[in-house]
Design a protein around this nucleic acid. Sequence first.
DNA 1: CGCTAGTTGCAACAGAGTCTCAATTATGAT
DNA 2: ATCATAATTGAGACTCTGTTGCAACTAGCG
Lengths: 153, 153
Amino acid sequence: MQAIERFAQYLSKHGLKMTRERRALIDHVLSVRGHFDVDDLLGRLRKAGHGVSRATLYRNLPRLVDSGLIHKVEMARGQARYELMLGRHHHDHMICLGCGTILEFESPEVERIQEVVCRRKKFVMTGHSHQIRGYCESCASVGSSPGSAGRRR
Amino acid sequence: MQAIERFAQYLSKHGLKMTRERRALIDHVLSVRGHFDVDDLLGRLRKAGHGVSRATLYRNLPRLVDSGLIHKVEMARGQARYELMLGRHHHDHMICLGCGTILEFESPEVERIQEVVCRRKKFVMTGHSHQIRGYCESCASVGSSPGSAGRRR
DNA sequence: CGCTAGTTGCAACAGAGTCTCAATTATGAT
DNA sequence: ATCATAATTGAGACTCTGTTGCAACTAGCG
């Protein structure tokens, strides 16, 4: 949708500029479905002939996150992925240790419990991350013999 | 406690050896209260005159985790911390973005909900991580002016 | 005691992300 | 439309965590 305008608005509100690179970045982010990481994105941009540097990507992704367009998902140890949030609901993730698949789940109850916990400790929550690790249906059924499931990454 | 014996047992069960370094490591891990990271530990060991190398630390912490003596807490991007689990209950963390304090919380309800969610998606859970980010009581009350709260790290 | 597999330290390496700096450019003011 | 200025960019050096190869060392079984 008018994601670009929305981002433009965010930028001007923060005294930032709408550059060619940022435009390309949004374009491509919008066209990905599912989760992606920095290298995915970099590859796409390059392939499309938009030579956005790694530094620029790293500098701008936090802006996209901040503007609410995308969401960052921290996987284990330095494995950050992003996903489009355009009009989506907040949700958390299950990560398959076998094949890397990411499943999503929503849980209003957990959100509610978090609020209660925070109130009890007088903690002002600004965000959370909640991941469940394990094996997806197909990886689990391949058998519990370790290493027999799909190659990881 | 007989933490050392417990670890020794774990080691022999896995064909591993109880070395001087591992003994020193456990000693020091047991003496820390609260959360610690690799450099904390390294510093303590050095100060105590036990020259354990960084590599050895990195090689052995996973063993301690695996044996159930300690627990690893993944903070944002390459900020791993550990905590003693000796006879403690599972719990999750609230991390103050102002001063870095870590508060703990337990929530059997969340655990239960996770199980339900997993069953629904036929996902075999092996673990989870659940962090709440925000500001602790004192940092929150310092005012929302950014940067005014305690130094981080 | 002696063997052998496990262990250690060192230093080189690897991956992810940040920073510096000179050159470029979007944008508000004129 | 032109200018002035602050933001932005790319390239590469750098940092921070953590890992790995290798030769020397050592725990622990027999």
